[in-house]
Write a protein that binds this DNA or RNA. Structure first.
Lengths: 407, 407
DNA sequence: ATGAATTTTTTTGACGTCCAAAATAATAGT
DNA sequence: ACTATTATTTTGGACGTCAAAAAAATTCAT
């Protein structure tokens, strides 16, 4: 049930609302913050002066290069998030690779790096320490002490459990239940969170445009694998163990094609790169491969399809159908406002789209599907780190907002 | 984003928290309300005195029949929701029938009635008025003026759209987009809400036991049809148009058996009464019937299965598999804490259960499924009206809590 | 019976936060 | 220099919470 409310809740919520407004709109004058939040100018003055004293935000110099301000009246003083108020560190673990980035409190990436770290053969009991060491090295070369980092966030392919702080299962690993946040917090003394990479991207979308992403928005990523981030009611939905939204491993056809997860018939087994590749090359009953298919091979396969190779076309169409029926099932359960499809798999969008739509139409009542907008958007792998940074900043904002307004 | 907070929010929230505590635990002394809510005794005194002045709650007479209180100290004065503070009216529309109930502010049903009202042949433009007339008649015989009703709630089979106030699609109707809340509010001058019956039952479960239903709980109803109520984060999830959770019309097998919704392969076409009946009797390609299968026929079919009739057993097993794989898909998307299966279809639970579990196991990664509890619970049709009443009382509580504490 | 002990409830006074209104500050226009 | 205009800060009041003290209503002990 709902918690009781008191003046502490009011303070925390309004401080957060002010920080949110500055994050979303960039620099704003106090009066504009007031309009954006509904708070009175008097309250903004009070809240802002405290946040300034705490070095969380700052008054920005006016930039009137020459002309001076055009409007009459006392000129605005714009407020902005103070870049140096905190720093966060994002980690992206993918097949045999770790990406790292440090961002300031404005979300600007100050340093980034990526390094080779074998995953498929990694041992569960060592991998967390290896990542921690990689982070320490990165911090050293970046000239940061670990005490300068407010929080660390880890994005992973596969099933993450934030409560346990572990990577439960991933196609990139043969090991299971790999502890990550524990070893990292132990070695660095910094709070650490972990989530699926698709969920992190969804955090990024949400931070960027909360209005478009209101209600229920499902973002489906297709490429090397098939993932999903689900935004419900202004929050990224994580499910019971923080590992929700395994859209790629929702069953498409019972007892169907083999999947990297070890079972059969998952959407991924038809719609991910390896599924399309396998179908096009007639290797129907092979085990699913654990290495990524080289993007160049997929480009070549796409060219074959464009040039009219029937097998190749059919493989892409099957992928579209698998996605389409999966989306139809998603619509039946969740009645979302919006579905976004993104990822490198969309290089073949023009081949996939018709069968995808046929799948949606065949799979769910018209009355449910007709109000859902289905959009294809482009996507850069960058967005995993950016989304992780957004999630971290949101968490740190909460910490900042919770502080008492002393003095 | 989050709304700003002020003292009005604090008042509303704390008044609501107090009302919630009294609803959940029944009568409580002020000090017990304090323990349950975390509010100080001083605040409880203040809030309670206002709610008493507004006739929303009342001090209850002590019942010390003879022995007097056993404990030392000033005896408690228990507070309770005032039964007469408001009345709500619940309407349950099912095949050719309308159920009606008036409940007091304690949720006690004071009057109930049910009447024949043809649905399948009803016309969209008249049906809402017919229901409104039925409500007016019911109110008259119950001795209530429509001004004595705070809110009306309508539970329907099929797809409800609360924003439009209409029944978008239902297996019980041949017409579509039937306006309901509009005509009723017009004729009675009372606010009216509409929702799917399974969602209303979920509201009932939630009101009864918010603790067990925390996180994500999916409740699946099987019988004449297959429905679902989804509780996410302490709220019944409604989706974009208020018509979420059409689990029964989630696709099970593409191009599969015909369903009452006009498409093919829905879970319902395998797991609802008519699907099982059809399968057992070999009428594979018939259209799905629009009348309910007589429960006695289902009992007879169940007996056939128990007696070893292969066709009958297979039909029930197919139903279990359809439910199981559907649940597996649900788990892949939502990673729920808990799945509850209820409804008259569970008369065959012992035949259905093994294939249902096989379906779940085949359909989703072990790591996702192993933490989900899947429970079978009994269920009375009564619960639709009771759940609707719970939803209405929650809404009225909100109105009460929003009032200013004048005086 | 009477007073002590105990427990619940109310009262009192302070505190925190918001807000409206007034005051102040800083600019452009005349 | 003065006025108009707009942004920000200050002031004083309102509202709701809470801690602590007071009051109320009972049981227990003598």
């Amino acid at each position: 049930m709902q918690e009781k409310a008191d003046s502490e809740l009011v303070r925390r919520q309004n401080r957060r609302v002010v920080l949110n407004a500055l994050r979303r709109h960039g620099a704003l004058a106090r009066i504009e913050v007031g309009r954006a939040t509904g708070l009175s100018p008097a309250s903004i003055t009070s809240i802002a002066s405290h946040l300034i004293a705490e070095q969380v935000i700052e008054e920005l110099d006016q930039e009137f290069p020459l002309g001076a301000s055009t409007r009459r009246g006392r000129p605005v003083v714009r407020l902005g998030i103070k870049a140096g108020a905190a720093h966060v560190l994002a980690v992206n673990i993918s097949i045999d690779a770790v990406g790292l980035a440090i961002a300031d409190f404005n979300g600007q990436i100050l340093h980034r790096s990526s390094l080779y770290l074998p995953t498929y053969k990694a041992k569960a009991e060592r991998f967390g320490d290896d990542v921690a060491v990689a982070i320490l090295d990165f911090l050293k070369t970046a000239g940061f002490g670990s005490s300068a980092i407010a929080r660390i966030g880890i994005a992973v392919q596969g099933l993450a459990d934030d409560k346990e702080g572990s990577l439960v299962w991933s196609p990139a690993f043969s090991a299971k239940n790999i502890p990550l946040t524990g070893p990292i917090t132990a070695k660095l003394g910094v709070g650490c969170l972990i989530a699926n990479d698709a969920n992190m991207i969804a955090e990024g979308f949400l931070a960027e445009d909360p209005h478009t992403n209101r209600g229920t928005t499902a973002t489906i990523f297709t490429g090397y694998g098939v993932g999903m981030g689900l935004i419900i009611d202004g929050k990224v939905y994580l499910g019971a163990t923080g590992g929700a939204c395994e859209f790629g491993h929702m069953n498409h056809i019972p007892h169907g094609a083999p999947c990297r997860c070890g079972r059969r018939g998952c959407i991924e087994a038809y719609a991910a790169d390896y599924g399309i590749w396998r179908e096009a090359n007639g290797a129907r009953d092979d085990d699913a491969p654990h290495e990524a298919i080289d993007p160049k091979l997929m480009q070549a396969l796409l060219k074959r399809a464009v040039d009219g190779d029937v097998k190749a076309v059919q493989a892409f169409e099957k992928a579209g159908e698998a996605l389409g029926i999966g989306i139809a099932r998603l619509i039946a359960i969740l009645n979302p406002d919006r579905i976004v499809i993104a990822g490198p798999g969309l290089n073949a969008a023009h081949i996939i789209e018709p069968s995808l739509h046929r799948g949606v139409v065949a799979g769910v009542i018209e009355e449910l599907r007709k109000n859902v907008s289905i959009e294809f958007v482009s996507f850069e792998t960058d967005m995993i780190l950016r989304g992780t940074i957004a999630a971290l900043l949101k968490a740190v904002d909460g910490d900042m907002a919770a502080q008492v307004m002393g003095g």
